[in-house]
Design a protein around this nucleic acid. Structure first.
Length: 239
DNA sequence: AAGCCAGTCAACCGCAGGGGT
DNA sequence: GACCCCTGCGGTTGACTGGCT
């Protein structure tokens, strides 16, 4: 016996939302909120939709406080950085980016960043043109993160989880080179110069897939992310 | 103009886990 | 502790679009 469906699939509409449905959903939430239960929401709002579909539509598209597309170089770098540490924890990664949804970040990764990484892991002749545009603000705006408390329930993150080795993520300048010379850096020169930092970053992330591990092992991460590192907030406490 | 193909992104699906009883 | 309901998450799918032949 399978799990009971969350709603009657024959009775609910599926597929793309019409402008009228969007209006209904938006209007209802603006006047009454979600009502505390997404399961009962469609009936109350007069929508022939599954509650999960309503929730997704609101959270990923209709919410007024979100942005779509137009990812900046700084955001790309931050996504790379967080992915190297966290793996595919999209909701957690999205929570570190201003007004981005997990779905948006995930799509951006799968359609653009992942390919950029893959191209960078390929032979040098084909990778040189894939250098990201310089991000002159990368260090200067190293704390664009309004580190909201993540909503992830599956794991509890502590300060050490973010700041412990591999140190690449909080090296101010260069993970494998002179980053250790930066004031306040916790890396040793030998550790910072070791490619294994990135390998273990991928391993520790648990969810890092093959190409990313290859990318790390190949040292491409060094070339790709040089100058993009965001020192994580030392006051970070994710519980 | 038509067909094909690749890229993008909204939406769906199934599962894990929290919270209430 | 066991069970159930619900939410949130990550992976995947499929519709749509624009570029190319």
């Amino acid at each position: 016996m399978g799990r009971a469906p969350c709603c009657d699939r024959a009775a609910v509409k599926r597929g793309p939302w019409s402008p009228e449905e969007d209006d209904k959903l938006r209007d209802y939430i603006q006047r009454h909120g979600t009502g505390g239960s997404w399961i009962t929401f469609p009936k109350k709002a007069g929508l022939r939709r599954c509650g999960k579909s309503c929730r997704l539509r609101w959270l990923n598209y209709l919410r007024p406080d979100i942005r779509h597309g137009g990812f900046t170089d700084e955001e790309d770098a931050l996504i790379f950085s967080l992915y190297s540490k966290l793996g595919s924890k999209w909701s957690l990664i999205a929570s570190q980016l201003e007004r981005r949804t997990d779905n948006d970040v995930k799509n951006h990764w799968n359609t653009k960043l992942k390919k950029r990484l893959a191209a960078f892991s390929s032979p040098p002749s084909s990778s040189s043109s894939f250098l990201p545009a310089p991000a002159p603000m990368a260090v200067a705006v190293a704390h664009p993160l309004a580190l909201a408390v993540p909503t992830v329930k599956a794991e509890t993150y502590a300060y050490d989880d973010f700041m412990a080795p591999p140190a690449a993520l909080h090296v101010f300048d260069h993970p494998f080179g002179n980053g250790a010379d930066q004031p306040g850096s916790t890396t040793s020169a030998s550790a910072a110069s070791s490619m294994s930092n990135w390998s273990s970053a991928a391993d520790n992330a648990g969810a890092a897939d093959g190409f990313f591990a290859d990318f790390c092992n190949a040292g491409a991460a060094d070339q790709f992310l040089g100058g993009f590192y965001y020192p994580l907030d030392p006051t970070l406490s994710l519980v």
